[in-house]
Design a protein around this nucleic acid. Structure first.
Length: 438
RNA sequence: GGGGAGGUGGCGGAGCGGUCAAUCGCAGCAGACUGUAAAUCUGCCGCCCUAGUGGCUACGGAGGUUCGAACCCUCCCCUCCCCA
């Protein structure tokens, strides 16, 4: 199956310029996608373009990932309702470095015939003078053309307008395409559907200045069943950086995919072929409770981003969290499972003598807003210590109840966990809250 | 400037002298069911404790009347509507 047809089958083709299909069948192209360095890590929202590049490479085309070290200094108005705050060049540089690592997991830089390339547009944008820019790029665009672009139009109609800086963004991206065309023979740019206008500007520029034909393709917006933004959970954005989103949580994010979305996500985010995905689709229809599709999705994507080792760790952690009696596990394993769960500490002496009331720990941990609420929670059966339900609202905990005498795992409901470490507080604080909800 | 309506718990919105920590709906939190889903059903939903026909703080703010005020009176602040 050629890439174009594969993209079509995977519903990854939102729109494409004319002739793309034919050229992809005939020739091996060099294609690029830009990544926004406004944070030091990409999040799952960038996964679709990453996969697009990876698929292009796998079918023989040469991918270029552009980290927008230069354009990142400006801010893309596309899909944004307001002006963005500018990042310093040091920040952008640091972010580019972080993103580089993540992209490298998806692309093969050592392939013999079509090695991937990672370039930073700061290399050419930051060295260009304002005069050169106006002469060599600005001259070829009419303001009329730029005003007609959807992203610009929307912002012009808005209350706050659009700064000249962001207005110029389109030209910079068009210029990127031109540079890549000249240096690497790049003739295809892909991107999110909000990038259409920017991509077309590049295509136009290449045609005018070089008389050459370039192509564009845009990917669909990833949607969720609930209508919420893809890649967000109650605990925030799902990042690719394991420091920001632990592999365990990352795995859980995919595992919790809704039935109605899971097939689509398998097509988008895995390299599984049509027969494999069809079979998983059948499994969703006939035996949804086994959640085989979700499991496969979580395994594949986690392996891709964090490696196979992290998959088995996440699976082990899931088994612990949703079943086993954690009191029998080594404390270090428990801590590893709950490493990104909010935690607090209590001093060992509070556990001596009369012990500490569960209610107090709950209120102190922030799991319950007050002791009254904690009492109510216990009465309604929603509190667990070390995965065991607490039935007595006056229950107290002693050192011997703690896992290895070191910690308690408090849980409210099915998913909200909190770790209480038993250790001497550094600054004499009793309960130290860290982090928000689980 | 004149006239009118109104400010109640996260939101909407009842209450109009005791039985009001305040009906109800939404949101939220638990429980049951289930697949770590959806829907549904049940309970909770100001704070405190020694958990009770318990205490404390609350119905825009400040005073007052009363044995007793979210409810009545006075002043102040704020919002909305209509007319100039």
């Amino acid at each position: 199956m050629d890439v174009y047809r594969e993209f079509e089958w995977r519903d990854m083709l939102y729109d494409a310029t004319e002739g793309l299909r034919e050229i992809l069948e005939r020739e091996r192209l060099t294609a690029y996608i830009g990544f926004d360095p406004s944070a030091s890590s990409l999040h799952v929202g960038s996964l679709l373009p990453m996969m697009a590049l990876a698929r292009l490479q796998r079918s023989g085309h040469t991918p270029i990932a552009v980290v927008g070290g230069g354009t990142g200094l400006i801010g893309d108005p596309s899909g944004k309702s307001g002006e963005r705050t500018l990042l310093s060049s040091e920040q952008v540089e640091a972010n580019v470095a972080g993103i580089r690592v993540q992209l490298s997991r998806f692309l093969d830089f050592d392939a013999r015939s079509n090695p991937a390339r990672l370039v930073n547009n700061a290399d050419w944008l930051t060295t260009m003078s304002a005069m050169e820019f106006l002469r060599d790029v600005g001259k070829y665009f009419t303001v009329n053309y730029m005003l007609a672009k959807e992203s610009v139009k929307r912002r012009i109609e808005s209350e706050d307008g659009i700064s000249y800086t962001e207005f110029s963004y389109l030209l910079l991206q068009a210029y990127d395409f031109l540079v890549l065309h000249d240096r690497y023979g790049c003739t295809l740019q892909a991107g999110g559907s909000d990038q259409w206008g920017n991509i077309i500007a590049g295509v136009d520029l290449i045609r005018r200045l070089r008389g050459a034909k370039a192509y564009g393709v845009v990917l669909p917006l990833v949607t969720t069943a609930s209508g919420t933004k893809f890649g967000k959970t109650e605990s925030g954005t799902v990042w690719l950086d394991p420091e920001r989103t632990s592999p365990f949580r990352f795995y859980q994010f995919w595992l919790n995919t809704d039935d109605t979305e899971v097939v689509k996500y398998l097509k988008f985010f895995t390299f599984l072929d049509a027969p494999a995905i069809d079979e998983l689709a059948r499994a969703v229809a006939t035996a949804p409770e086994t959640r085989e599709a979700q499991r496969t999705l979580a395994r594949e994507v986690t392996a891709l981003v964090h490696g196979a080792e992290q998959v088995s760790r996440a699976e082990r952690a899931s088994a612990v969290l949703f079943g086993e009696d954690i009191a029998t596990l080594p404390a270090d394993d428990v801590l590893a499972v709950f490493d990104d769960v909010p935690s607090s500490t209590v001093a060992p002496d509070t556990l001596e003598a009369g012990g500490v009331a569960v209610v107090e720990l709950l209120a102190g941990s922030g799991l319950a807003a007050s002791k009254s609420e904690a009492t109510r929670l216990i009465r309604s059966g929603g509190v667990y210590v070390n995965n065991r339900r607490v039935s007595d609202e006056r229950a107290r905990l002693y050192a011997r109840d703690a896992i290895e005498g070191r910690l308690f795992v408090l849980r409210k409901g099915q998913k909200q966990n909190h770790v209480v470490r038993i250790e001497r507080p550094l600054a004499g604080r009793g309960v130290d809250k860290t982090g928000g909800g689980s």
